[in-house]
Design a protein around this nucleic acid. Structure first.
Lengths: 192, 192, 192, 192
DNA sequence: AATGAATGAGTATTCATTCAT
DNA sequence: GATGAATGAATACTCATTCAT
């Protein structure tokens, strides 16, 4: 009961403030529990943070996976991956920033390691989808799947970030289309 | 004299710890000046941070520009842009992370605005290079140049990040080649 | 428990040093609580100060009021007002100085406003007593009651101050008598 | 040259901020001299403050004295004393507050002693005028002249203070008249 | 299971003062 | 006479964490 309220509040507060600016007081306040209850349920701030980030990664992976159940052409799969990640990046902008970036130095080493591991798993998740597509459909260049996954995420994040401060100039559809094109076909006109 | 020592130390400390974990005490210690000297030269932590970030952006832009002086084919230009940014991302990993990412919530609004402006200028700088290439050489897809610039940066950052924790698996040349390919040609084998 | 210890210590420290020279460290030390406990109980130095000043004003008003319960001739009322204020001014010299004077510029505007309001209330308290006396007994000149209250306080303060550095020359009774005479009859021999 | 500029600036800054909030930086800035110049001319902040307060007391005494040269009836003398002090209290409100009140605990003991001595001299100055009037004209009650002087100053200060926050309700003439009446005749209608 | 008062190490910032030039 | 860069002790305030209840 308390645990869920706390996680919920923590997502909000970490998202709005980043790890260091977020305070346990604020989280307790938002969760409507006493500060002590935080420490009754989570041993430390960084462990609470890890729980939140983990939930974020699991959520995006679960949501993506659910939508890729049926066998689909690779293009469609990539399009759906992009769409699901954009949902997260655009709707929970700050939370996404945290999940994907705020893995900062001020966190205890062991928690930091776990966070890095979570990020690696997410990349592996994407990389595996690409690998399967590569084998089955012979559409993908012979590039390292993990690096490819990383570059997909990087492109999405960076483009979303730009989009978010220039929403008047583009529609969400423009953004999706741009990202899909850039990821699949690159910037250049066929110089294969 | 002091000013330079401080900036130098600040780059180190901010790079190693990020904005919030970095302490003015530590910076003073590393710069071998008294704490008061920091405040004699910079009005606040956030202003010092801005100075450092600004120097970073100016450095990467200056270095890139210097290498693009002569008229070059677009491919070569992009390749050089990538190489220069990789130099920064790989050699001064943490510094690059700060310059490109740590534009976080706990900074006074006015400094934050200036930082965002700096980031915008850097994107414009890259976008202009792309625009010129697009016009002259008709090689680029008709994509928004700013979004394209953003996606280039995002790709580089994310790939470098992955590379840095898997250096045993790739060479720097592999990385450069991967990024260049992904950016120019995308992941798919010619589905134009 | 802590709260009371803190207020008690704060009265001492503010009294001895004035607002600006008083340090939160010193207050914590005297209250025998950790520095954090100060901020757990009071949001800021100025709020703590306000609490102390408020307590002072309330104390002097309560004590005075308690002694004016029964209907008394105006002269007697004024005499008692003087006596109670002298008790405060002489016994808690520094505290009184703070309560009545240290409403200085270096305090946040909102707290400053509250302090001024407290001072106004105290003057109103005295003015009302004078007003009632004026109506009922037709003894008082037709002077503005608030200004009259202000001048009573000013006279008491200034005379006490002088008295305190010249205690060998006067008795407390001399002082009381002097103040009463000056306030009621003025310096001149009947020039009505 | 510098010395005068500094004193001038110091009067302003001390007046606006009180002793503790006033900073040597601000004074140097206003005086348009380097900070070192302050210390070239005055050994310390408190000495500079003393100089300023001394100037203030000397000024009010000189101005008052100049206007009491000719032999005048006591009433007129008191009236003029009030008027000159009101000029100071009302026109240079903060400066007056400093000169007459801000003799606070955070100042080195020896400077503090000198400041108290200055205040005593001012009271003596007023007391002497009263004494002379008492002897010559047999108008004054047989009250201690120093206490009387103190109570005059206290009345003026306190009434001015009240007046300054209620300027819409009274004219300066009202104030002068009130103070004169209260000081000479007291609050009561002849109960001699 | 939950609380919230209490803690104290840590942080940014201020400012009177010094001193080499 | 005058400067201003440099100092460092002092200060208000924050916040993750603890623990008795």
């Amino acid at each position: 009961m308390s645990k869920e309220k706390i996680i919920h509040a923590a997502i909000e507060v970490f998202s709005e403030n980043g790890y260091h600016r977020a305070s346990m007081d604020e989280i307790a306040l938002r969760a409507q529990v006493a500060k002590g209850t935080l420490y009754y349920n989570f041993p430390s701030k960084s462990q609470l943070f890890k729980t939140v980030v983990k939930a974020g990664f699991e959520d995006i992976m679960r949501r993506t996976e659910a939508d890729l159940n049926a066998p689909l052409p690779l293009e469609e799969m990539i399009f759906r991956i992009i769409r699901h990640h954009l949902d997260l990046f655009l709707e929970s902008r700050h939370f996404a920033h945290i999940v994907f970036n705020e893995i900062s130095n001020g966190i205890e080493q062991d928690v930091l390691d776990e966070l890095k591991q979570l990020r690696r798993e997410h990349l592996n998740f994407l990389a595996k989808i690409l690998e399967e597509g590569k084998c089955e459909q012979n559409l993908l260049r012979d590039l390292d799947a993990n690096l490819a996954a990383a570059s997909i995420v990087g492109t999405m994040e960076s483009a979303c970030n730009y989009y978010l401060s220039h929403q008047d100039e583009y529609s969400r559809q423009d953004l999706e289309h741009f990202i899909f094109t850039v990821i699949t076909k690159g910037l250049f006109i066929s110089i294969d």
